[in-house]
Every structure is written in C-alpha cells, then in structure tokens.
Design a protein around this nucleic acid. Sequence first.
DNA 1: GTGAATGCAAAGTATTTGCAGTCAG
DNA 2: CTGACTGCAAATACTTTGCATTCAC
Lengths: 144, 144
Amino acid sequence: MSDDLAARLREQGLRLTPQRELILRAVEELRHATPDEVLAHVRSQVSSVNASTVYRTLEVLEELGLVRHTHLSDRAPTYHSTREHEHVHVVCRGCHSVRSYDPALVQSLVAALGEDGFSVDVGHLAIFGTCADCSAAAASPEPT
Amino acid sequence: MSDDLAARLREQGLRLTPQRELILRAVEELRHATPDEVLAHVRSQVSSVNASTVYRTLEVLEELGLVRHTHLSDRAPTYHSTREHEHVHVVCRGCHSVRSYDPALVQSLVAALGEDGFSVDVGHLAIFGTCADCSAAAASPEPT
DNA sequence: GTGAATGCAAAGTATTTGCAGTCAG
DNA sequence: CTGACTGCAAATACTTTGCATTCAC
C-alpha cells in the first residue's frame, strides 16, 4: 500500500517518514477529511504531530497524485485518497450529507467542455444543492 | 436598479443605506469579486467603508437573493449579481481564467440528480480543470 | 425617538512561513 | 554526513463579533 508512497517519494528525491505514512493512511481511512480531522486522527495514534506537517504533507501527497482535495463546504477543504475510484461529490446544503457519484453523471458536461479543449477535473467537482429530505422539510416546517 | 434593493430591504424591515447601495453596485460592476475586491472598489469611490460592513452586507444581499457566491479559487469566495442570467462557472487552474456557461451545459446532470429528488444549485457550481491553452503549454514547456 | 446599521478594534479560524534541531538515506 | 523533514512559534489571510456611535425611518 504505502509501497506506492515510498516509490513515488523516491522518484522525486523525497523521503519516506512515519508522518507521511500516517497522514496518507489517515486520509485513506477517513475517506473525506479536512486537514484538521487528519491531524486529530493521526494524533490519536501518535502524539506530537504538527498541523504544519499535515498541511505540508497533504500538499506533497497531492503533488504525488496520491490524494486529492475538493471543497465540500464553505470552510476547509476535504482530502480523499486517489486509490478510491474517481467520483463526483454531491453535497446537500440542508443536512450537509455528501454522496459520491460515478463520473458518468457528468460525462455529457465533460464531453461538451472537451470540445472547447477544456479538460474537466472531475475529482474536484462538488455539486451543491438540496436533497429530497431537506426539500420536504423546508416545505412542511413541522413534520408530523 | 437598486429600486429592487430598497423594496426587498423594506419587506424585511431592513434599511437602505448608502453602503448597501454601493456594495451591491460594486458586485454588479465587478461581475465576479471577492469581499476584498468589493471593499477596494467601494473605497475607491467613498473612503471609510469597513470590511465588516462588506461581509455583513454581502450576507444580507445574498439572503435577499440579490447576489450569489461561488468558490472560484481555494481562497476567498466570489460574489456576483443575480441580475445576470444564471450561469455556470468554468475555471482553468492554469491561467485562472473564468468562463461563464449557460446552465444548459449541466442540464443532464440536473435532470439525473433531480430523479433522486436532489435539486442542484446551478449558480453555485464551479467546474475546475485545464483550458486548451494551458494544456498546450504544459505539453510544450518552451513555446516557440 | 428608536432600533438597525456602521466603524473600529479585538478575537477567531484556517493556513503559511522561518528557523533550528532531527532524522532518512 | 547532508540536506530533507519536522516541530514550534510567529505571521498571514480571511472572517466574525462586541460594543459604542450614528443614521434611516
């Protein structure tokens, strides 16, 4: 698993450190996590890991193509592993639920922009809106 | 124009102030502006307007439905007027150019999610990727 | 006159940076 | 050994908040 990590780091003349392994593993385990959440998770296993290390490492991992980030809220970005299948995020602003969809969802969009020579970063895509439950809730303020 | 503003404010028992007019006008003139840019623009006309007023006002204007925001960078949000036709933002990560597209671009996506009862906030949508020019530039580092 | 809105300054959150010590290779 | 990496603390960017004053109505 972090074999991949070691290899890619070496290619770039970078070093494999326990922090980098832990942070990558945290992203993989948490599925969708903000830098803060990653930090908390890593700290729950090994004390003393610093926030700046998390930021710096996430940046490195993203450059290596091992993680990706997207913006699932107006606040901090969330990171996920690229070992998962690429997916599109659909976020409900009412209940903050996040659902993942197959990239096929946006294929016509990708094709349309592709004709203009624009290549869409599907993994970064976050689609905001309101889910069925929350629409219903908004319609009837006092549910039975 | 800001007739609309006066009316909507009154509906809510809110007040029409010069700052609110100026900030709304700034958003309309700048097309896509961060709170900072709005502040700078307003200040170029009238000195002493405060950053907190800009934040508070953008929030009010958004509640009134007169402006919308979207995230066109990893940094500050950008606001635009709802008097423009609703549009989808397509952002190149290479040159940071922003192009606006007709919502038709994402209609199949909206329809597909609609079947699940999910209603997409099209105006908030930002699609990231790489434009033709930047792909070309990446391919040939040293252009002739 | 009265309460909504503003300006100011201080606090808060998220992230970045400089630097000295540490550790991977 | 050497330079990449880390932790720490300070700095930065962005945004929010409390409060006294001002101004729209």
